[in-house]
Design a protein around this nucleic acid. Structure first.
Lengths: 226, 226
DNA sequence: CTTTCAGTATGACATATGTCATGGTTTTGG
DNA sequence: CCAAAACCATGACATATGTCATACTGAAAG
């Protein structure tokens, strides 16, 4: 996380995304807002520890994964538009460990909450926002789960590739990806090959090129969508 | 939903479950609290419409299902201990439609919110509670999803049977159940048969008897747990 | 430069699950 | 009481997915 020293831009963004309207005591918190940037692949949130910040995700793309007790990690969803991050962690629930990673460079507004946490608990505008954010996520996650259960790997993989690719180029560690999608490496490879033979992807020594972006989207079945 | 006219019991339960401590303006809401009972199999929450109540689930057992756009319905989880119901609906999100059914007779405290909704939005104690409740659910649902993805139907079915059975007797509409578990009727039958052949269940003309409750629990893998 | 290791790739086989056809049984509406 | 509908049951076959063994490759470490 790199802090961007640009007061003007910070203020512009805060207005643009209506941050003042989301806090009753906005003025009090003002000194604790910072404009920050995350590099591609940088980890934004992980486990405990990182709880000193609440993040307002502004632009870029992030990937949310759920860390399992057996050490595995499963994809939950992607976000590409305004979101509150750290809402779960705000409640200091330890049983949940999600890891949020920047898929593309991201701009966020960070609110350092260590010293204002107590005050935020009295801020009903903020609490409404927090609660609404959680409600939205719950809705989304429930829906995604159902789709996960109902559709084959093909859909999840198509959606994943569609979302993380840049310039129609897809290149990721497939071993890790199989973990993320909750499947076996073997099977992942099979489906990748299937995509290739269907002319959706084309294999290169390093990574794949998307040849039929439209078809990929069709297969994705609205999964993991933002 | 049947209202139980028993002021004394209502007050006792409200104290026991610390309802006064969950609202800043508790006294204002007092006239809107009611003690209610749901019969076994009665629908507690469904779609829109039912939003005039917030429910504090006290005793019994309930089943939460997610209604899909294609008309299907998928099991989300069970609850057997204190829970807030209607938190999602409180935010008036239409995309989410969950149905909550009483698996066993239930006692709840209903709070009629039609006239106090606005006031509740200013009640930061309540908002904290609401938000915390949503955070817990989100955590749980994420976890269950992952398990769903990682374990075979066997686990989900075992957990389901374990939870809805009474006196070691299990008797439900298997066609509906297959829908609920996101699988095919055929496959459900197969696994049921498997349980029988393993001596976990015993088939009777009407329903099944659990012979090996312990094994069933083992198979359940902590799924759908409360 | 060689060894090691992580990542890639593939075949063979097993298991989990879905689909379809078909028939039996029970419930229910008339 | 009969017919229709809903539910239960099972076989055959297809597809989705997992497991294991094995081998190749390129990059990192010594």
């Amino acid at each position: 996380m790199e802090i961007i020293q640009n007061e003007k831009r910070l203020n512009r963004l805060m207005l643009q995304y209506n941050l003042p309207g989301r806090f009753r005591y906005y003025e009090e918190y003002k000194p604790y807002f910072h404009l920050v940037r995350f590099a591609k692949h940088e980890i934004i949130y992980q486990k405990q520890g990182q709880r000193q910040y609440l993040l307002f995700f502004i632009t870029g793309k992030i990937k949310v994964c759920c860390d399992m007790s057996n050490g595995r990690s499963l994809l939950v969803c992607f976000y590409t538009s305004f979101q509150l991050l750290g809402d779960l962690e705000f409640h200091e629930i330890d049983t949940s460990t999600t890891t949020i990673t920047a898929v593309e460079p991201c701009i966020c507004i960070a609110l350092r909450i260590t010293s204002i946490r107590k005050r935020l608990l009295e801020d009903n505008l903020f609490l409404q926002f927090l609660s609404r954010s959680l409600a939205d996520k719950l809705t989304r996650v429930s829906r995604n789960n159902s789709i996960n259960l109902l559709y084959p790997l093909e859909s999840r993989l198509a959606s994943y590739i569609y979302q993380v690719s840049e310039n129609n180029y897809f290149c990721e560690n497939l071993t890790q990806l199989s973990e993320l999608l909750g499947t076996s490496y073997r099977h992942l490879l099979r489906v990748m090959k299937e995509f290739v033979s269907q002319g959706i992807l084309e294999k290169y020594p390093k990574g794949y090129v998307i040849k039929d972006s439209w078809r990929l989207m069709e297969l994705a079945e609205d999964l993991y969508l933002t």
